[in-house]
Amino acid sequence: MRPPTSLSERGYCPVSYSYVDLVAVIIVAVGFVFMNYGIVALFAPRNPKQGEKLETYECGELPFDDALVNFNIRYYVFALTFFVFDMEAIFLYPWALVFDTLGAGALLEMFLFLWVLATGLFYAYKKGVLHWV
């Protein structure tokens, strides 16, 4: 059985340096997209005023009304539920990381937390929040 310690006693960059790579990947990826757009600008025909091709696509009909309408309340409800559960998942991660060394107390406490979580889910279920109309 493996001793309950972390395996991370290996060399790594300090945090401030390791995020430079993240920025660099973003820069390179954005640069790639711009490069493609540049090639398109060089080679592709441009004829914007022709016909009705600039109209919004609605399967051949001329579009009517604006598409940006009110949307159904159920989306907000799901967004709120998502928010609650995402926060709770973030609380679970630090516990999962070190729980080997914490012993029975932490285990029981976290099960209590999970139980509260499950109760919340059950409540939402019973209230019909999770029911897609």
Binding site: L22, V28, A29, Y37, A44, R46, T56, Y57
Partner: peptide, 29 residues
């Protein structure tokens, strides 16, 4: 590369233009 890119009339310009960038960048990340 040789297709014309069409910028439709009624779009919300900045959201429409930025969305492909975000999709592509996150895929690389």
């Amino acid at each position: 590369w040789v297709k014309e890119y069409i910028h439709p009339n009624n779009v919300d310009k900045w959201l429409y233009l930025i969305a492909p960038f975000i999709g592509f960048v996150t895929a690389n990340l």
